[in-house]
Design a protein around this nucleic acid. Structure first.
Lengths: 217, 217
DNA sequence: TAATATATTTAGACTCATCTAATTTAAAAA
DNA sequence: TTTTTAAATTAGATGAGTCTAAATATATTA
């Protein structure tokens, strides 16, 4: 139906729209796609003709409704396959991204719905990101950054805002896992370092950078 | 590593070598790949330079050892994913080919080995075709055609030589499933029609064409 | 507002995998 | 062995997705 390249552009535009606002710049897209700007211009022209995006010369690009549907489908595929890799094949949450980048392009509505059922209709992927349902509806999770909590407050670790392997590794090493209850014991005024109490009374001290990459609710 | 197209050519050459002998003709390849002959000539030149095939102008092609390894890897992927689709997702054996054609190109040795382990290291796919192991060794199954059996002989249904959806459908409808014990009750001399006794004393009569597409051992 | 810096697009070229039309090579038949 | 037929290759073109270098818009700052 659509080429892998088109799908990857759609996904990238979708994500940039989520984080950086409605209109996406050529250069931003070039950066995340790992290509040079003129390639993006060319691609956007082609995708504009196919009504996947609405593109105005030198004004940036937005997804059309059609493009948005495709993008959400890719996100759904990606996240469900990640669940499969972790839950069924025993991969770590830090190892599944690249494989899911391939699997997300496998076509077939029935396939992904069967996979969804097989996995028990999970609501989130191994990083806590929400999985769109078969109709493309994305469950809104109302999580906040750990760094927004005050001393004494308590919450459940539900997701990460930094998906890098190195950060996920760090969390593994620090023994902080998705679903853990975290209580803010103290916040160091000088450098915004957070001391957390985890299950079993274990205490961990994390930097502000880390507190800024942890989502809780 | 290799493009999907290259992988599909390698698989096609591999299968043609299995059935039609060592050297594969441009036209045969064009036919199974669904492209025109000049496209094949071009592709074989490129693949020859990459040492995936040994190609001699107007003399046909053979796989190199390197090409053969890649081809067997694809076959391994294809068949393991078929097992997954049938055993885990509940697909029918007649529905999985096209999806597996996509999944077979997913890269990652670790992935396919983990999938293999998850499935319990199956020896055959849902059609009874042998699955190469992690080292690329294909278990030799010594099966024969049902049509080679004589009256009174008995054997287990272990595979099909016709993989078409329509044939698989026919077998489903006739209630003949992989693993069934089949006994040749009688063979009609006039038109080589086979009357078979299945488990539970059920009798089924099948044409010579069907007897020629069923493998037993 | 004018000058400068940055972002974007045009122009022209490359690779991969394909096509059609024309030509050449190999095989089969006379 | 010559002729005819079939198979394979060359030649030239196309579309997708990319590139570099040059030109043009847009934004920023003086």
């Amino acid at each position: 139906m659509h080429s892998f390249t088109e799908e990857n552009y759609l996904k990238a535009i979708y994500k940039l729209q989520e984080t950086n606002g409605e209109v996406v710049a050529t250069s931003a897209l070039a950066q995340v796609m790992g290509v040079h700007a003129p390639s993006v211009t060319d691609m956007l022209k082609r995708m504009g003709q196919k009504k996947l995006v609405s593109y105005q010369k030198s004004k940036g690009v937005k997804l059309t409704e059609k493009g948005r549907q495709v993008a959400i489908g890719i996100v759904r595929n990606h996240r469900l396959w990640e669940v499969f890799l972790v839950e069924k094949l025993g991969y770590g949450w830090d190892e599944v991204h690249d494989i899911a980048e391939q699997l997300e392009h496998i076509q077939g509505e029935e396939l992904i719905n069967k996979l969804d059922a097989y996995l028990g209709f999970p609501k989130t992927d191994p990083h806590g990101d929400p999985i769109p349902d078969a109709k493309g509806v994305l469950p809104k999770l109302k999580s906040v950054l750990l760094s927004s909590l005050k001393e004494g407050e308590e919450a459940t670790f539900t997701g990460v805002s930094d998906h890098s392997t190195s950060f996920l590794h760090y969390l593994d090493k620090a023994g902080i896992a998705l679903g853990d209850m975290l209580k803010v014991k103290s916040i160091e005024q000088y450098d915004q370092t957070y001391t957390l109490a985890l299950k079993g009374k274990r205490e961990v001290t994390v930097s502000h950078k880390v507190a800024n990459s942890i989502l809780v609710s």
